[in-house]
């Protein structure tokens, strides 16, 4: 992984996403092989190394009776060069909730508090484990904006998700994992060579819906337009989606 990169680990439930990330985070021991995170073996994690990484786990909502501001201020004290809690509350959109007890927050707000806690130490490397599971569409969009902002500020991000649109929206590169093995690593667009694969042209012919696979869709559509004398009814041209490629890869 390169510095400043957003890397998404995609895979079905039980594929080993969380296990992989937990080995990288130093929560779990590997059975074999070598691991290096920021030049250190996570098995030998020390506070200095911990201060350089940020971790957003799957679980949330464990502060119950403490307020957003108290939790953030407290966690800032763990790090040698923490971010300003005030600025972070602003960044994750919780300024209005600063005096709210953690248990009264909605799922999306708790998740944003989790992210704020993950980045309060100004980590060089941030792990996000299924950060938007259970979010409504608007909350996801806002959350994606937050992650993009962090990436632009230079944070390297490792993200696990089983949402393909999330990987496509955020990641520079995607790794697909299934049954504990990485089966593909590429940019979201390049995954499974989908940009160079045949496109499917669909339209409504005189005798019903038609579909044709072609490597040269522009030429095909031009010819078809000529044959039909102009407008092609219900024309669509599609290439395999990330989902199509992904389902092929994990099959």
């Amino acid at each position: 992984m390169a510095t400043g990169e957003v890397f998404a680990l995609l895979g079905p439930n039980g594929a080993g996403k969380t296990t992989t990330v937990e080995i990288l985070e130093g929560f779990r021991r590997r059975d074999s092989g070598e691991v290096s995170v920021l030049g250190t073996d996570p098995d030998r994690a020390n506070p200095a190394w911990r201060a350089r990484i940020g971790v957003v786990l799957q679980s949330t909502g464990e502060f119950e009776e403490l307020t957003v501001e108290e939790v953030l201020t407290h966690f800032a004290g763990y790090y040698p060069h923490p971010d300003d809690p005030e600025r972070l509350m602003e960044l994750v959109g919780l300024t209005g909730k600063r005096k709210a007890r953690a248990r009264t927050l909605s799922g999306g707000q708790r998740r944003r508090l989790d992210v704020a806690l993950g980045v309060i130490g100004r980590p060089e490397l941030l792990f996000l484990d299924e950060p938007t599971t259970g979010f409504d569409p608007q909350a996801r969009q806002e959350f994606w904006g937050l992650i993009r902002g962090l990436a632009e500020a230079g944070t390297t991000i490792v993200l696990t998700t089983h949402y393909l649109d999330e990987a496509e929206a955020l990641a520079d590169r995607v790794g697909v994992i299934t049954a504990g093995r990485i089966v593909a690593v590429d940019t979201p667009a390049g995954l499974g060579n989908r940009t160079s694969r045949p496109a499917t042209v669909r339209w409504l012919g005189p005798s019903g819906p038609r579909a044709e696979e072609t490597a040269t869709p522009t030429e095909f559509v031009a010819r078809l337009s000529g044959e039909l004398g102009g407008e092609i009814p219900q024309l669509t041209v599609t290439r395999p989606t990330l989902e199509d490629v992904y389902l092929e890869l994990i099959a």
């Binding site: 506070p47 201060a51 971790v55 786990l57 464990e62």
Partner: peptide, 17 residues
Amino acid sequence: MERDRGVLKRLAGTPMP
């Protein structure tokens, strides 16, 4: 309960001694 709710894991992920 804290272990179940992930409080301990979160703390273990910070540089807190």
